[in-house]
């Protein structure tokens, strides 16, 4: 039993952090919005294919490494398109040519977030000629006629949102089962945790420098104590996310339960921390030029993804033995 990163896992996390902080720092979002055009940069270092088998062109790693990467992506509110692109690889596993193009970043994938008979709502720019839909029971990859879609504005301005008629979607590949769904929940939880952790870093940095009434604001308990609570949320979400990813990787019976808990705790941390970060900054916190709102807006997008609170409550409110702790 070892619930901490081993040296190999730490290396992956460090490499992801170094790449993302250098190439996609949070502050980039003030200057230009070209995340969609830069997705191929993730393919050169193999980030899309972390969890794809080596014989299919990936790195042959698992959900733990993916979780570590998406945690770092979440810290910088990194390009959202990386998420559907990485997940789509698991659906396209038996389509060699498509798999190659996705791994290379030559084709990009939008994420469908709601769909009915008449059409769907999706997230992804003009560059997306495919769209991914995940549900608890099956995952579907569509060919997307992006030119038939209408863009709608999105609170998170780094993401393009669109509406598509049903006729613009043609099924390309489908997998059944909840494996990809749980993996997606881990990735989103990691991005939520990244936002929560980034908010904590932002306010603690500011609290050491900004002075009011002749003292740094970090010396006031009205600021210190909410910061401590933010740190507790980050720590609890981190530990539960590690556990959930490891339980999923090991195929434990309680993996769905652990993943639902990780998602809920990370979501709560992202909500509360991105909120407190703005409030504790005071006036500067609500300005466009400052980065606090970028984390709040990204967190708003993330916590709407992949299922309702009701579904998660249902999973969590079963009375079960924990795997390993049970009989």
């Amino acid at each position: 039993m070892y619930l901490a990163l081993d040296s190999h896992e730490q290396e992956i996390a460090n490499a992801a952090a170094a790449f993302l902080r250098a190439e996609f720092p949070l502050a980039r979002l003030h200057a230009r919005r070209d995340d969609d055009a830069r997705l191929a940069e993730f393919s050169t270092l193999g980030w899309f294919g972390l969890a794809v088998a080596e014989e299919r062109g990936g790195s042959g790693l698992g959900v733990i490494e993916q979780m570590l990467f998406f945690l770092e992506l979440g810290r910088v509110a990194g390009p959202f398109g990386v998420l559907p692109q990485a997940l789509a690889l698991q659906v396209a596993a038996d389509e060699p040519e498509l798999l190659r193009a996705l791994l290379a970043g030559e084709e990009n994938v939008a994420l469908l977030v709601e769909r009915d008979g008449s059409g769907a709502r999706g997230l992804g720019g003009d560059n997306c000629r495919y769209a991914l839909e995940l549900t608890a029971g099956e995952s579907t990859l569509f060919r997307l006629a992006r030119e038939q879609c209408d863009d709608v504005p999105c609170l998170d301005r780094s993401v393009v949102m669109f509406k598509t008629p049903a006729s613009a979607l043609q099924t390309v590949a489908r997998v059944t089962g909840d494996g990809l769904w749980l993996r997606a929940q881990v990735c989103v939880s990691a991005m939520l945790l990244g936002a929560a952790a980034s908010a904590l870093d932002m306010i603690t940095g500011y609290a050491k420098e900004r002075e009011t009434f002749g003292r740094p604001i970090g010396a006031y308990q009205a600021v210190r104590h909410p910061c401590a609570d933010m740190a507790v949320r980050v720590e609890s979400a981190r530990c539960q996310l590690y556990y959930a990813a490891a339980a999923l990787a090991a195929g434990h019976d309680d993996a769905a339960l652990q993943v639902a808990a990780a998602r809920l705790v990370a979501q709560h941390a992202a909500r509360a921390n991105t909120d407190a970060n703005i409030q504790l900054h005071g006036g500067i916190g609500v300005t466009d030029e400052f980065s606090a709102h970028l984390l709040l807006k990204r967190a708003n997008l993330l916590w709407r993804l992949f299922g309702s609170g009701r579904d998660r409550a249902r999973t969590l409110l079963q009375v079960d033995d924990l795997d390993g702790a049970g009989s």
Binding site: L3, S236, A237, Y242, A262, R312, A313, L316, L317, L322
Partner: peptide
């Protein structure tokens, strides 16, 4: 919803212990 969050926090406490 309240009970689910408490259960999730309780699992997180166990994970914190192990971590």
């Amino acid at each position: 919803a309240r009970l689910a969050l408490i259960k999730a926090d309780t699992l997180a406490i166990r994970a914190m212990t192990l971590a």
